[in-house]
Design a protein around this nucleic acid. Structure first.
Lengths: 95, 95
DNA sequence: AATTATGATAAGTCATGACTTATGAAGCGA
DNA sequence: TCGCTTCATAAGTCATGACTTATCATAATT
């Protein structure tokens, strides 16, 4: 899970506010530039961000479709558990 | 993030199918009973599962409300990004 | 009471991964 | 072209955490 690491989540949240270059991220975050690049690599492989060259710089932005699988996974449990709860609430004493 | 670890996610998914004791989980999962207990401790602290003593055993089940914060976090990005996309799609050439 | 089953904790090992500094490649401006 | 900036990768360090075996407490069973 690419969003497990707090630093990576922070980067992701920064990018959610707007497109940023690596250097801009490095200025804001409390870690070195290589650390940023490494995190971006993981996020990119997870399809959570996309990058786009702009001269010597490289602009990163969020790939919203990357959140789809997580959302689906989450919705599945959400529905299952709601259904299970409903069953219990409906005066079920199977257990 | 308690759901970062694959083993822990597997435990969580097992519990999503129904309430289980520690021994039952240990029988199904490819790790030792102490490992199971340790994972359950993390899940419990994250409010993702609840436990209930039943004699010498202890029954674990999912606490669906624990998924609420994750869902909220996810929805926030979802909406933000959809809005951002809409802005772009609406013939915006700011960039 | 003795045995067995269950589950939590302690202690130690080991792999993973999040960081660092160093460095090289590529683009831009003087 | 030289220097400056930007970024990625290499290599190494170090902390975290996911496992193990050992053990103890508690509860059910005979």
């Amino acid at each position: 899970m690419a969003l497990a690491d707090p630093t990576r989540r922070a980067i992701f949240e920064k990018l959610a506010e707007g497109r940023l270059s690596v250097a801009e991220l490095a200025r804001v975050m409390p870690v070195s530039q290589p650390a940023i690049s490494q995190h971006l690599k993981v996020l990119k492989e997870a399809r959570l961000v996309v990058d786009q060259p702009a001269g010597a710089r490289r602009i990163y932005s969020i790939d919203p479709s990357g959140l789809g699988p997580l959302r689906q996974w989450l919705d599945r449990f959400w529905d299952e558990q709601l259904a299970a709860f409903k069953t219990l609430a409906d005066g079920d004493e199977t257990e």
